[in-house]
Simulated scan of single mutants.
Amino acid sequence: MEILKFTDDHKAYRERLAAFLADEVVPLIPKCEKEHLTPKSMWRAMGKSGFLCPWIEKEYGGQGLDFLYSVIVWDEVARINFTGLAVGLHSDIVVPYVHSFGSEAQKQAYLPGCVSGDIIAAVAMTEPGAGSDVASMETTAVQEGDEIILNGSKTFISNGVNCDLVVLAARSPEVENPHQAISLYLVEEGTPGFTKGKPFEKMGWASQDTAELFFSDCRIPVANRLGNAGDGFLMLMQKLQQERLVCAVGGVFGTEAMLARAVEFCKTRKRNGKPLSKYQSVQFALVEMATELEIQKNFAYVLLNDHMAGKQVIKETSMAKYRMTEMSKLLSARCLDIMGPEAAMESHDLARMFRDARVTSIFAGTNEIMKTIIAKTMGL
């Protein structure tokens, strides 16, 4: 069943990316996992080779390619089982804020660096006491002349240590309506008053530099505001469909990588003289997982087509994010059960996949939030 139409150019891009990852990234994964950090040089290499923000127009340093090139990047990075390169976050969640809402001057200033890998982007919304609840946000932005003074902190920020540019959500304290008080600001690394915490010690995603960000009388030009004052909430809501689609499809690709390893393991490991894959109970378990994966993958691909066509599929995307990340957790556990103690060793890919899958139901809006959104669309 072919739902997404990949051309020969798409396939050539995939082959080039797979070769790049095998040569330039895979050998460094153990070091990144141990140090809980992915070197910026890896991001620059990705950018130089054309694997960051491939959809950005040539006038801003990009290639002007279609969205399927981004999908290919998510897929191939998932295949090598590496979360340190949060390419989907950078290229397809954060950078689109600058591309969609930035002034021409902002686009010229930042987009070429985002494409080249010289600028690593992060979005900062979640706070220690508010989660991702915009109405409870405490980080403030006070205008004083032609400057904005930022005060507050953000937590669980992916790319938090490496980030060169932060899309920051903050509120104007004088505006009573919490949704009309939010604006988005561009804050560069090195700005006085902006500091970063150390990478968190996490259960999974060890090589991803998730950290706290702190803003103490941090002054930025008013020109660093994205769009109009008070439009931040609407901007965030507008981009959530793509953000959650990235997470949903990422869950599919991650599960696909897990299952491929499980199938290969069961074909090559023997019990009582025959491969595990020849035992009916193992066959049925693998078949059940493959069936669930195929159904979810096809749904994800239909949503990708609708999204690329400009359709509003908020309900369906929320469903996909919820179901596909749950699938990733459940199937990683089942693969571990089938493969046994060998797969639980730190030297085996599946141990890391099992841990990395757990958080996917939490970020980009927890799956409970997804269910709340779906319930509202159903008139419940």
Rank of each mutant, 00 (worst) to 15 (best):
Arg269Trp: 11
Gly254Asp: 01
Glu256Leu: 10
Gln242Thr: 13
Gly251Leu: 04
Arg261Ser: 05
Glu264Val: 11
Lys239Asn: 12
Glu256Arg: 11
Leu236Pro: 06
Arg244Phe: 03
Phe233Ile: 12
Gln242Ser: 15
Met258Glu: 04
Arg244Met: 03
Thr255Ala: 13
Leu234Pro: 01
Arg261Val: 14
Arg244Asn: 00
Asp231Met: 09
Leu234Asp: 10
Met235Pro: 07
Met237Gly: 14
Glu243Lys: 14
Gln238Gly: 14
Met235Asp: 07
Thr268Gly: 08
Gly250Thr: 01
Val246Met: 09
Cys266Ile: 06
Gly254Gln: 06
Lys270Pro: 12
Thr255Ser: 03
Lys239Met: 14
Val246Pro: 05
Ala257Ile: 05
Val246Phe: 02
Leu240Phe: 10
Glu243Val: 11
Leu240Pro: 02
Val263Thr: 05
Cys247Asp: 09
Glu264Asp: 13
Glu264Phe: 14
Val246Trp: 07
Arg269Tyr: 15
Asn228Phe: 13
Ala262Thr: 04
Cys266Thr: 04
Ala260Tyr: 02
Ala248Cys: 09
Thr268Trp: 05
Ala248Met: 07
Glu256Lys: 12
Thr255Tyr: 04
Gln241Ala: 09
Ala248Asp: 08
Leu245Met: 02
Lys239Ala: 12
Gly250Cys: 01
Val246Ile: 06
Met235Ile: 12
Glu243Ser: 08
Lys267Trp: 08
Lys270Ser: 15
Gly230Lys: 05
Gln238Asp: 11
Ala257Phe: 08
Val246Gly: 00
Leu236Lys: 05
Ala260Asp: 02
Leu234Cys: 08
Glu256Ser: 08
Thr255Cys: 09
Gly227Tyr: 07
Leu234Ser: 12
Phe233Met: 13
Glu243Tyr: 12
Cys247Gln: 09
Phe265Ala: 00
Ala257Gln: 06
Ala257Tyr: 06
Lys270Arg: 14
Lys270Leu: 13
Arg261His: 03
Arg244Tyr: 01
Met237Leu: 13
Val263Arg: 11
Gly227Asp: 03
Glu256Ile: 09
Asp231Lys: 08
Arg269Met: 06
Gly230Trp: 02
Lys267Ser: 14
Gly232Trp: 00
Phe253Gly: 03
Arg269His: 10
Gln242Asp: 09
Val249Ser: 06
Lys270Cys: 05
Glu264Pro: 10
Asp231Glu: 12
Leu245Ala: 11
Ala257Glu: 01
Asn228Thr: 08
Ala257Trp: 03
Leu245Ile: 08
Gln238Val: 10
Val252Asp: 00
Ala260Ile: 07
Ala260Asn: 11
Phe253Asp: 00
Phe265Asn: 00
Arg269Cys: 07
Met258Pro: 06
Val249Arg: 02
Val246His: 01
Ala262Gln: 05
Phe253Asn: 14
Ala248Pro: 00
Asn228Ile: 15
Gly230Phe: 02
Thr268Ser: 15
Ala260Phe: 11
Gly232His: 02
Ala229Asp: 10
Leu240Gly: 08
Ala262Leu: 09
Gly227Asn: 06
Gln242Ala: 15
Val249Leu: 06
Gly250Trp: 00
Cys247Ser: 14
